[in-house]
Structure formats: C-alpha cells, structure tokens
Design a protein around this nucleic acid. Structure first.
Lengths: 77, 77
DNA sequence: ACTTTTTACAATATATACATTGTATCACAC
DNA sequence: GTGTGATACAATGTATATATTGTAAAAAGT
C-alpha cells in the first residue's frame, strides 16, 4: 500500500466516522482547533498528508481508535 | 496532554523502540525513505510535528503498533 | 589515547500543510 | 422554485516539515 492509497483510505474512513458522529466538516474543524472546515475536506479527499497531532485530535474528537482510521493489516502490505 | 507533550513522549517512545530494534537514526531514516537521519533526531527530540505517513512508515519499519508510540490513555486527558 | 559511530545542532533551500477568502454545486427543507 | 446548510474546488499567503550540507560533541570500541 503506497502513501497515496493510505491517505485516500484514511480520508474515506474519516468521512464515514465524522458522519457517524453527526458532525459537519466545519464542526469537526472547530472541535479540533483547525481554522476552517476546508482543511477537513482536503484530508477526506486524500489530498494532504496531515500531521500526527491532527490525527490524534481527530481520534479524541470522534472518540475512535487509530484502527478506525487506518487498516493496519493493509498498511503492512 | 497538550501538543508539545504528545510530541515529546512520541519522541521518547520512538527512540526507545528504535534502540530496541538496534537501528541508528541514519539506518531508520533510510529504511523509511527519509533522506537523512537528522530528521529522525528532530522527531525524537519532539521538535517537529511529523506527518501521518512518516509515523506509519516507522510503525512498519520497527514492526510496532500505534500504541507503542502514543499512550492512548494519556492522549485522552 | 585513538578511531569509529552515533547523535546534536545550525544554516539554508524547497516542498507542502494550513489559514483565509471566495465561488459553485449539491442536497434538503420550506 | 426559493432558501439554507454542507461540501467541493480554486487562489494566495504564511508557517513549518523535510532535504541537504556542515561542524561538533558524545559514546563506544579497539
């Protein structure tokens, strides 16, 4: 699994989890301290390789684990 | 736990896991496709907020889990 | 003591994430 | 059909991670 694929799957998972939590991109952005919801959009589309601190903030905000965002079994391939 | 503390603990854990694997900063950098070992040094000192793809590459290279690098219980506080 | 390896630290250049604003489209409610 | 909220997408500026090279010091081995 290459970097681009990892980021795309991360984006898909994030979108699903965010919707499950009933939050808009804007609401999630505010919750984790990002200035604007557009950033969440770019992450969900797999366009940017965001920082570990943002990922952790997302995990906290949505109350989910690393495994909910990244499929470990696939990562190792 | 704020961002700076998270990055510092991440750095400490990374250093411990890297030593456990018997790799130098330089060797780990090469293994995960970073150009130079200095970058590993800055991560271990908690100076930079690196990308999720680098963290995943580290997990693969050292054959460890997210929990080995970040203490989930503390992150939530 | 000497050599070798590893790590720390500094400086500069480049790539890219993030901030900010604006526009357009889509979906849904009314 | 109109209005409203959510998302996609573009452009520009700023902040920061990474690339690259160099020097120094600390650590480890001989």
């Amino acid at each position: 699994m290459n970097k681009k694929e990892i980021l795309k799957e991360f984006g898909r998972n994030l979108k699903a989890e965010r919707n499950r939590a009933g939050l808009s991109q804007e609401q999630l952005a505010e919750k984790i301290g990002l200035s604007y919801g557009q950033v969440i959009g770019t992450i969900e589309r797999g366009e940017i390789n965001t920082s570990i601190s943002v990922v952790i903030a997302i995990m906290n905000a949505l109350n989910i684990d690393f495994e909910d965002l990244f499929d470990i079994k696939n990562l190792m391939k």
